[in-house]
Write a protein that binds this DNA or RNA. Structure first.
Lengths: 367, 367
DNA sequence: CTGAAAGCGCTAACAG
DNA sequence: CTGTTAGCGCTTTCAG
């Protein structure tokens, strides 16, 4: 017979069961288990957590009793004593975007596997520095660690973070203090443009985004730097007028492409800094009757699901891995293992599909 | 002068500061504040939480001292005493999908506003019933409530949930016990097809998805039912062979559309049960040289960002509101307000763009 | 190897 | 109005 919970060890407040047909189950506490197993709560605690110094037989008995009682430690209650919450937070600028939802998904999978809960918090108006501080402030002692994904952190904020007992890992942003998932945006820009150069293109347009504060992780800036370097290596100088702002959205990409294609000397190829902007480019090209890839080669970044469907050549970033890698680094750090190990994201990878084609000197349009 | 933390009230373990240049700040506890303000901890607690029975002057003083000490209550520590975690969880089948990331975003915004933390947990293989139970089990006592978004709950699971002190709200799924954000999928199907009928279409294809367990929220089934009803009202009978499975993905929609359009009697209009499938339809049509909307009208569901860009007519669902509405209902319930109020999601709304056109008896293709 | 006891930081009666 | 006294459920020395 399973040990019963009929007589709880401590006096209960005798609250009358609510109107529900069956009263809510009184959850077994560690004390119930101790009583039933004939040991002390300390032993139960040790036994169940796999700590040493517990006789095998005792441990087995405790485990069995716990199982029968369906006992589960109340993690929230153990927090004050253990000083850990078994929870981490991921801070993102917004969660309903392709990129960040994938980052969160990756982090969630890793955390779940290790028994950590994942709190998501969005720091929407990253413009307001105070937002970030307030966010961390609110998280204080609620989580063991936090992942900042592309959230700009000011020096004072980083400094402030140091004073908290908090594991920190960043994605994109680098702090010189915390491990960072370093996305090599320069390399990404290089790879994309090298591919276009290999195909013989020399007149290349770029769909970029707002230049960010250079003090922080400047994603568009770095990618464009890479593109510039690749061009230079081929003896071509980047024409700044060929860089249009696509704001990292589909519609922005469309507008920017319309702009580039209506020049007197339209580019023969376009490098979109994100797949979503590339989608916009596809729409713009269609509107103008420009054939991709015969008249215009197009390459994006990300490898969004839709990219495959429309045959978009792209630089694949395994985004979910960004989140997963960050989470692993954080958990490693929290578990006291070598926390200095830099989390390394997967290499960006060129995925050639059908949106890029060898440049032909004789432009079809002029034929 | 600000009260100092130099002499903490209780004996400290004297842990030596870590190797960090500046030692981690010893966080002020309620006891520090009490000492500094010359009151008891109970008073501090009351004062800071805005409880009654605190003299205005006392409260002001306590608040001031707390501010100076940068005191912040340790919510985790208050859990055991207060019995609340100020945290809710949202359980989704997957987080990196357009729909669910928006649901989570909506819920997050509401929770953040009310000071609740949001835990995301994905129940990937919903096929395994035990997954869901295990998920809830793990959440027990870690959260005050949970939102199940389109997560199929078996009767036993619902029954099991009742025995836990847990606020529950569902999206999609109905339990007869918990408030549900009821998505009127029948109405959605009806609206879409009515629009096509209004334009004179009678031969309508449908891009659907796997029929789900009818015992649960059968999204594709309900939408098709609605479509069927609308057709019937116009004296048309739904041709089952005109319903193709698009699996709710872009590529699935493309495949299904290729199939429909290669019939000897292709539909003159297609109702895609989701925008993403509609995107696939756009691709398929282009591949086959079928002009949208002149030769084929197309309508989707969701109002995905990309829908606007490509001019897709659609039934808008304000998805983030699904999450927000659920969260509001849950918080209402947790705060003891009228928890019986059904959370009502925004009405679906027909957004006419350029992908649908009046049917012309003389098919261009046969001209 | 095990138990007793002392908290973790805060809240919640219950007296004043 | 305010302080005192118990804990919440678990972990952790420190003895045995």
């Amino acid at each position: 017979m399973a040990p019963s919970l009929v007589a709880p060890p401590r006096a209960y407040c005798g609250r009358v069961a609510e109107s529900a047909p069956r009263p809510a189950i009184e959850r077994a506490t560690i004390e119930h288990v101790a009583l039933a197993a004939g040991v002390s709560v300390a032993t139960v605690s040790r036994a169940l957590r796999g700590l040493p110094n517990v006789a095998a037989a005792t441990r087995a008995r405790v485990q069995e009793v716990a199982r029968q009682l369906d006992y589960r430690a109340d993690t929230a209650a153990s927090r004050p004593a253990a000083g850990r919450t078994d929870t981490v937070a991921v801070v993102v600028p917004m969660i309903n975007s392709w990129y960040f939802s994938n980052v969160v998904a990756g982090a969630e999978a890793v955390c779940a596997e290790s028994g950590y809960d994942l709190l998501v918090v969005s720091a929407p108006t990253a413009a307001t520095r105070h937002e970030v501080i307030a966010t961390v402030e609110a998280l204080h002692r609620r989580v063991d660690g936090v992942i900042f994904a592309e959230v700009p952190l000011a020096v004072e904020e980083v400094e402030d973070l140091r004073h908290r007992r908090l594991g920190v890992v960043t994605i994109g942003q680098e702090t010189r203090i915390y491990p960072a998932v370093r996305i090599d945006n320069g390399r990404i820009g290089e790879m994309a443009v090298e591919h276009l150069l290999d195909l013989g293109h020399r007149h290349i347009g770029i769909l970029g985004g707002q230049a960010e504060d250079p003090a922080h992780s400047d994603v568009p800036g770095r990618r464009i730097d890479g593109a510039r370097a690749a061009l230079a290596a081929a003896g071509v100088q980047l024409d700044p007028t060929l860089v249009a702002n696509g704001a990292f959205t589909v519609d922005g990409g469309r507008q920017a492409t319309l702009e580039l294609l209506s020049r007197s000397d339209p580019p023969t190829a376009i490098f979109a800094l994100s797949d979503e902007m590339a989608f916009g480019a596809v729409l713009a090209a269609r509107e103008l009757g420009v054939d991709i890839p015969r008249e215009l080669s197009l390459i994006g970044v990300d490898d969004h699901e839709v990219a495959q469907v429309i045959g978009l050549t792209t630089i694949r970033q395994r985004v979910a891995e960004h989140g997963a890698v960050a989470a692993r680094a954080l958990l490693r750090r929290l578990s006291g293992e070598d926390g200095s190990l830099e989390p390394v994201p997967p290499e960006p990878e060129l995925i050639v599909r059908t949106s890029t084609l060898r440049y032909r000197a004789v432009d079809i349009r002029s034929a």
